[in-house]
């Protein structure tokens, strides 16, 4: 198994509709392919960590890297792991119309993203913190300590 982290820029801003479609497609395909992790999106900035079996993860990265919706895909790490740190796949962004999103499976408001899992090494957890910072900026980046249940 391995995990991969990358940063990228959307070619044009993604609408609520675009994001919702991406969320639905990724939830479906990732569940099928045993891919878990988290994706951050804000103002055209994209970052994603995903984990899965080597071949699956590599194939997915190649596919994502060629996706025309974004460019400047910069792989930050690509490393073997002994166990998963994420139970599921989530996507965190600020919808323009948040009303319908809260109930969506796999959706998170950026301020509700939990701190990186303990199972990640401190160096990798720091990487996740930094990509979160890079995507959402310092104001929204602080992990939500008072997440309502």
């Amino acid at each position: 198994m391995k995990h991969i982290v990358y940063l990228s820029r959307a070619v044009r801003p993604l609408s609520d509709q675009d994001l919702q479609e991406l969320l639905a497609q990724c939830r479906r395909d990732n569940a099928r392919n045993g891919i878990t992790g988290i994706l951050f999106y804000s103002h055209g900035n994209i970052a994603q960590l995903f984990e899965g079996e080597d071949v699956v993860a590599e194939t997915l990265f190649d596919k994502i890297a060629q996706d025309g919706r974004h460019s400047h895909v910069q792989k930050l790490i690509d490393r073997p792991i002994s166990h998963r740190s994420f139970a599921d796949w989530h996507m965190a962004f600020h919808p323009i119309e948040p009303a319908g999103f809260e109930a969506l499976q796999g959706f998170l408001l950026p301020q509700h993203v939990p701190a990186p899992p303990e199972t990640l090494s401190i160096a990798d957890a720091t990487l996740v913190e930094l990509v979160r910072l890079a995507v959402f900026g310092p104001a929204a980046a602080a992990p939500d300590t008072a997440t309502p249940a």
Binding site: L76, I77, S121, A123, L127
Partner: peptide, 15 residues
């Protein structure tokens, strides 16, 4: 790696 220097630190000091 991009944050690997943290791995070099003494475990008590990494966090």
């Amino acid at each position: 790696g991009p944050t690997g220097w943290i791995n070099l630190l003494h475990p008590d000091e990494q966090a």
